[in-house]
Design a protein around this nucleic acid. Sequence first.
DNA 1: GTCTATAATCAGATAGAC
DNA 2: GTCTATCTGATTATAGAC
Lengths: 191, 191
Amino acid sequence: MTTITARERLINAAIEAFAEKGFAGTTTRDIASRAGMSPAAVYVHHDSKESLLFTVSIEGHRSALDVITRAAASSTDPIERLRSMVYDFSLWHADNSRVGRIVQYEYHALSDEHRAEVATYRRSIEKTMQDALADGVDQGVLDVDDVPGTAFSLLSLGVDLVRWFEPGGSRSADQLASLHADLAVRMARRT
Amino acid sequence: MTTITARERLINAAIEAFAEKGFAGTTTRDIASRAGMSPAAVYVHHDSKESLLFTVSIEGHRSALDVITRAAASSTDPIERLRSMVYDFSLWHADNSRVGRIVQYEYHALSDEHRAEVATYRRSIEKTMQDALADGVDQGVLDVDDVPGTAFSLLSLGVDLVRWFEPGGSRSADQLASLHADLAVRMARRT
DNA sequence: GTCTATAATCAGATAGAC
DNA sequence: GTCTATCTGATTATAGAC
């Protein structure tokens, strides 16, 4: 049995609100109300509205990095590894489109210190994709002119899902992730 | 010689502010101040903050649709046409990253009526890309399993530029647009 | 750990002088 | 068409009772 603390209820309420209205468009009253609490209760469990955003953002980044890191380690075959990485990264963004929207679009709303901390996760995600492409080129299996640019473009496919994806739409998360994985292989495979 | 009206100065100020702080995070006082005017002056030339957003959004959509429509008409060769469409669409998003950010990320902040009007432009953009892919498949030059999905993914590459692109960075708009065009051809070409 | 009440500030929009 | 001054209501965050 899972016990949800008041602190966690507020985080879940913040995720809903930030994803729907944006950070600046969300009031602490809205967060409290979604969690079934009074406006003052927010400040018992969290320091500020920005610290709620940081909590959501850092956990989201950690989770996305974890997903792509595991996929990178899932195979040594460059094609299979690339397919896994793109599939899992896109699937994560579809399955977590609300958190993903906050992670991507409210990055600028973080304080300078918090933004710097989150930035290290972003660089790790990019480096993981770049390393996988570079290794595939070294093995002679992939043909990629611009490794950093192509890595970024592959990640873009997944990231851009958070702009519009909603569960229950005409395409499933799995369909989209599979499509992206197929496109990725065509983009990078040596012919 | 070009005369800039007060109305246009306010629109330019709104573009700066909305792109930097988001619609909800921007105050009408900020817009007025950037235009070198008093808070009240905003309402002499525009009905509301939302109507300023609508003006920016509709013009941005019109411009982006225009760019991709012209590119679609620039060639009948499916490969050259695809290259032009992706290059021009991505170039537009890099060269107009501030307007593009507003177009993409503040779509939900429009009133219901205004959002419906803008939505027709979005559908036209998607249809233009889908038609180009479908025609290339018919001609036997392209090989695309999922035409709507691939069309959307190609547009995503350009759209996602607005999330991070700033002029003067390590990559030029032209470099990024060329990269996207190359990747697009690899994604869709029959082998 | 929850609440009600409130402080202090700031928001969008308007009135009316010049 | 511009300004200063202001209305009305909302906002983040805190104080203090229970």
